[in-house]
Design a protein around this nucleic acid. Structure first.
Lengths: 126, 126
DNA sequence: CAGTATCCGCCATGATACTG
DNA sequence: CAGTATCATGGCGGATACTG
């Protein structure tokens, strides 16, 4: 057993520059990437619902993030083609797998933020 | 049981703007954050070693990322105070907990990058 | 070796206005 | 409602030079 499983694979070593996995990692860790994926993991949502759910995201960034993830195969866009428009967003099976490893991250941060230096600074600043 | 555990907690809901957990999440998902934490989870490293290990990172960004994580309480900086200088970086117990949830993410991406749209585009572009 | 200091480009991000 | 188009900006990130 190698310590680093990616040493066994030529391509997907994220520590090597110009590796494709870096691109995916960049998408996921983009400013709103994690929140969008985790939000959709909780439940499929319409555009407006998602927009309200993720407080602070701009329309442009929501659209951009969703289109990136759609191209990546993580998000499914289902337009009903009605008037007024209704579009549902959900995770693909691939996206659900990804969200599966993202949820523990979000949970951990939420539960442990008070143990971090960020909390100290905010406390002393107040 | 609530679907969203953060609904039970007033502060650490990452879907609310100006939540502290957003700050931590931003640090972790900063351009080099995940790679630095996962690298140090594999083994403690000296500055130069880390610089070579994470291919493509600039000196500025390595320093900046390390200082951020040090302030957050994720990374321990151990300067030997010798000449020539020797500085060892390692994860704190808190940082190790965080890395614990990051490693599955990096592994998943590495293993499944070929199933994503990123791989398709790279394939058709070549 | 392990950084810091400085300069700078540029693109990610955001605000606004508009549309089918 | 669900976006797109356009414009503006600032700060993220990189390159380089320098230092103890």
């Amino acid at each position: 057993m190698a310590d680093r499983i990616w040493e066994l694979l030529p391509d997907p070593d994220p520590f090597a520059a110009n590796c494709l996995s870096r691109v995916v990692l960049d998408h996921v860790t983009s400013k709103w990437g994690v929140l969008v994926l985790v939000a959709l993991a909780e439940e499929p949502m319409r555009w407006g619902q998602l927009h309200r759910y993720i407080d602070g995201i701009s329309e442009k960034m929501l659209a951009q993030t969703l289109r990136t993830f759609e191209a990546d195969g993580f998000v499914l866009r289902d337009s009903k083609g009605t008037v007024p428009p209704r579009v549902d967003y959900s995770l693909t099976p691939l996206g659900r797998e990804l969200a599966e490893v993202l949820i523990p991250l979000v949970h951990w941060v939420g539960k442990n933020v008070t143990r971090t230096g960020v909390a100290d600074q905010a406390g002393s600043a107040a």
